[in-house]
């Protein structure tokens, strides 16, 4: 009876075909643990993860682009080495550990920020532009932004240093432009490369936030995935991984297309 209800009496290939056909119509089946449709749970979680990832990437970009440009102008100096050091730490730090440390400092010792969750009302009425709600975002965003900070800083630094070595910068100087105006030209030339890396990082965060979301019990896709693994909730697992892979691939495709649109030299 149970076998028939779940379609387990058919061969695996047929089962997979049926699942695939249903997915095309937007039906991911029912969650075994909660009995609710996977689509419903998935999309609510997806919105929360997008909020977190986008916030982290934007925060990382605003900091990393500034210090990366700063270092790119001073390659080889102590300040450049300091920035490169920050970048290495950003890439090497285990972010689930940083999450714990941040909770220890800000939630346990100082008691100024909430340790976990999305607030008393949950995600239904969550509004990131209100302080009462926004404070739940702060620690997860700091944690998640660390790896992108490291990677974007490195990219910006090498891109800026490379542009500064090109002849046209010399021409601009010879024409008597002020340093601020030259900076504008340099930034404009370095930006496409940096934005591409930023987009890639957004893709990684969408799929890679599972550890951080678990620690902060942030009801996003990573948390959903972890719950599904622990309860062996296969429909949820399949659906989430499929959607995350689609998002990851689409992000990469969009970046590739945008890059060729911005810089026609890449088209061959």
């Amino acid at each position: 009876m149970v076998k028939k209800a779940y379609g387990f009496d058919k061969p695996i290939a047929v089962q997979y075909g049926i699942w695939l056909g249903k997915v095309l119509t937007g039906d991911f089946g029912m969650s075994i643990a909660t009995g609710r449709p996977v689509t419903e749970e998935l999309f609510r979680a997806l919105a929360n993860t997008v909020m977190l990832s986008a916030g982290a990437v934007i925060a990382a970009f605003s900091l990393a682009f500034v210090i990366g440009t700063f270092a790119g102008y001073r390659v080889g100096t102590p300040s450049d080495r300091a920035v490169t050091g920050i970048a290495v730490i950003g890439v090497s730090i285990p972010n689930y550990w940083l999450a714990i440390v941040l909770v220890i400092i800000f939630a346990v010792e100082l008691n100024v920020l909430p340790a976990t969750g999305m607030g008393p009302r949950g995600s239904e009425t969550f509004n990131p532009f209100q302080w009462d709600h926004f404070k739940y975002l702060i620690l997860p965003i700091i944690t998640l932004s660390l790896i992108p900070i490291g990677i974007i800083t490195r990219t910006t630094r090498s891109a800026v240093a490379e542009v500064l070595n090109q002849d046209f910068v010399e021409t601009l100087r010879a024409k008597g432009l002020m340093e601020a105006e030259i900076l504008l030209h340099v930034v404009k030339n370095a930006l496409p490369q940096v934005l591409a890396v930023m987009g890639l990082q957004f893709g990684y965060l969408m799929g890679g936030s599972i550890l951080v979301e678990t620690i902060f019990t942030w009801p996003g896709t990573g948390f959903l995935l972890n719950k599904a693994i622990l309860t062996r909730d296969l429909p949820v697992l399949q659906g989430t991984i499929l959607i995350l892979a689609i998002i990851f691939v689409t992000t990469n495709l969009v970046i590739d297309l945008l890059q060729t649109a911005v810089d026609p030299r890449l088209k061959r």
């Binding site: 799929g207 599972i210 550890l211 995935l225 693994i229 697992l237 991984i241 995350l244």
Partner: peptide
């Protein structure tokens, strides 16, 4: 390449 590395590792060992 369709999966970020952490997600792939988690999915396989899951």
């Amino acid at each position: 390449y369709a999966f970020p590395s952490i997600l792939l590792a988690v999915a396989i060992s899951g």
